[in-house]
């Protein structure tokens, strides 16, 4: 079993001395991200309510922070950082491609039906 863990996160910005130390470091990072999400979720600053590519900037921030969290859970807790590149790509690329495809299809369709409801002749308010 690979005892050689890669001990750098943030592209070498932070280097840890041991694997245990890295785990606590990643916990602190994840907690900070979650705290930021919760604070933004409670106060919902008015300045972030503007739309950007069909969605509020605030929602984009939430989604990006979530993906960042997912990255650190996968890379450091699930030790993806220490696996071979081929295993990593097999898992990550497959999932990312299929999920992106699915999301695109379903959200596109949902938006289309919403358009039919609001501009067509479907009565909903009764």
């Amino acid at each position: 079993m690979a005892h050689a863990h890669k001990l750098e996160i943030l592209r070498g910005l932070i280097k840890f001395k041991s694997n245990t130390q890295k785990i606590w470091g990643v916990l602190i990072l994840l907690s900070i991200i979650t705290a930021v999400e919760v604070v933004l979720g409670i106060y919902k600053p008015e300045s972030l309510m503007a739309k950007f590519i069909g969605m509020k900037i605030l929602n984009w921030i939430f989604i990006i922070l979530t993906i960042v969290k997912a990255y650190y859970i996968t890379w450091d807790f699930m030790h993806m950082r220490d696996e071979t590149a081929s295993l990593r790509r097999m898992v990550v690329w497959t999932a990312v491609f299929l999920i992106c495809y699915l999301i695109f299809i379903l959200l596109q369709e949902g938006g289309y039906i919403e358009g039919i409801y609001s501009t067509g002749y479907v009565k909903k308010d009764f």
Partner: peptide, 11 residues
């Protein structure tokens, strides 16, 4: 994604 679909439908 199905949740997102329904949500977009009744946005």
């Amino acid at each position: 994604a199905a949740y997102g679909f329904s949500r977009f439908k009744f946005i």
